[in-house]
């Protein structure tokens, strides 16, 4: 009876149309012609991509520069009072070497001119040497007090810096 039989036994697969082999052959031909055989797509992990490292490095660099900029812009008026004299001296010694050489060269140059001018002024009462130049040479005496000009010239020569190469504009402050 029906209770003893599985329900599937009361179902019969329907007759179906015949699919010719040529149908599949044509499909294969179209696929092979239109889709040449390719290598399967390779999945490259993110950390193995060159662009990943480049963009990461760029991001870090930008972040670093931005943080520095923000820190600098946040201290436009540094509190010099909080710095000790030795810290300031160390900073100047470390960072102002080029300017220092130039200052020395100007000093020597101006000093020479001033001496020459003073001699001329002694000879001629109406001296043509500007007073301010003399004043400068005097004021610089304070700066380079106790330093021999020969030592300065020797130092500058050692640094391969020629005093005569300085332009007039460099000489006059």
């Amino acid at each position: 009876m029906e209770e003893n039989k599985n329900i599937v036994e009361f179902l019969k697969p329907r007759e179906r149309e015949v699919i010719e082999d040529s149908y599949f052959e044509n499909m294969v031909s179209v696929i092979v012609a239109g889709n040449p055989k390719k290598e399967p797509a390779k999945i490259i992990p993110l950390y193995q991509r060159k662009s990943f490292w480049i963009s990461s490095a760029a991001a870090v660099a930008i972040l670093f520069v931005a943080i520095r900029f923000m820190n600098q812009s946040g201290s436009i008026n540094p509190d010099f009072d909080s710095l000790s004299h030795s810290e300031l001296t160390a900073y100047i010694d470390h960072n102002i070497e080029d300017f220092d050489q130039e200052l020395l060269a100007q000093y020597v140059h101006v000093e020479t001119n001033a001496v020459q001018a003073k001699v001329e002024s002694d000879q001629h009462l109406n001296s043509s040497v500007p007073n301010n130049e003399l004043e400068k040479s005097v004021s610089r005496d304070d700066l380079f007090e106790g330093i021999d000009q020969k030592d300065i010239l020797e130092y500058l020569n050692h640094q391969e810096m020629n005093v005569d190469d300085l332009e007039e504009t460099d000489v006059l402050f």
Partner: peptide, 18 residues
């Protein structure tokens, strides 16, 4: 079309279409 035909004899199937 349907995929199966129903063979008569099962009461539960008789009232339904293929």
């Amino acid at each position: 079309d349907s995929v199966v035909e129903i063979i008569a004899g099962h009461a539960a199937l008789d009232t339904h279409t293929a």
